[in-house]
Amino acid sequence: MIRVDSSLCLGCQSCSNVCPSEKIARSEADGRITMRWKSCNEKRDEGCDLCVRACPTKALSLAAHDGAAAECEASFDMAVCKICGSRYATESMLKMIESSLPAEIQKDAAGLEWTRVCLQCRRNVEAKRLTGQILPGRRTKDWRCSFLFTAGKRGLYPGRMRLLYDLIIFVVFRI
């Protein structure tokens, strides 16, 4: 049967991925990840030990049957993305990543801690950065942005021209 050291377990998908008899279940609900290792008949030094070898932190081991606790369970908090607020990875996975990467690359040039940002937002940040680099001020230097118009998110807005119109109409109708 499988013994789990829950202080080492990251809540990743390794063991549930490699188990040929699908005895390991990983489920995600309400911002928590729950791992369940069902009882399994494999013994130490014989039979299948795929999950033990796949575990990135060596949290699993095979032990002899003692009948007491046949099933193990562990649940993990998921980290919240700093930008969009979605839950994307377990806290312990991120801690493991932060401890094994050099500290100087864990913040980008803008000072953003990218490990605490979800994958979608990382790509968005990168897209924005590249746009700013290659096309500096495509909008602000738009030739259409004169005194009368301002360029906005969805094209040109009447801007000050509209104010001028309103003023003229107001004055004309008063006379």
Partner: peptide, 13 residues
């Protein structure tokens, strides 16, 4: 093994 650590370790996602 499909642990998913590489996905979260990639700065560009």
């Amino acid at each position: 093994t499909g642990c998913g650590l590489c996905a979260f370790a990639c700065p560009f996602g």
